[in-house]
């Protein structure tokens, strides 16, 4: 009976580790979206005058940060 209880605990612990890794990866992907949104707005605002005078309709105004394995697993 004791052994069986330990087995359930062990299985739960293993699955829990996998779930935490998955959660952490997903949070990092969300942070990547958040960072992209924040990084795209300032160049758009800064090029407003040029878009209406010297460089009409300038687009695109920024490049997208690539989503890498390092970003997903280490958050940088």
């Amino acid at each position: 009976m004791k052994n069986k209880k330990a087995q359930v605990t062990l299985e739960t612990a293993l699955v829990f580790v996998a779930l935490i890794m998955l959660l952490s990866g997903s949070v990092n992907i969300w942070l990547w979206f958040n960072r992209n949104l924040a990084e795209r707005q300032p160049p758009f605002n800064q090029t407003r005058v040029a878009a209406g005078s010297t460089n009409v309709g300038q687009w695109p105004v920024s490049s997208q940060r690539p989503l890498t394995e390092q970003w997903v697993f280490q958050g940088r």
């Binding site: 992907i29 969300w30 949104l37 795209r40 707005q41 309709g57 300038q58 687009w59």
Partner: peptide, 26 residues
Amino acid sequence: VLVSYGQSLQEQQILQQQAFRNALKK
């Protein structure tokens, strides 16, 4: 669902900016 929602928000922001700049150019 959360990841997919984040992707939609990103596409929406890009489109809003792009539509205005392209309208300006045209």
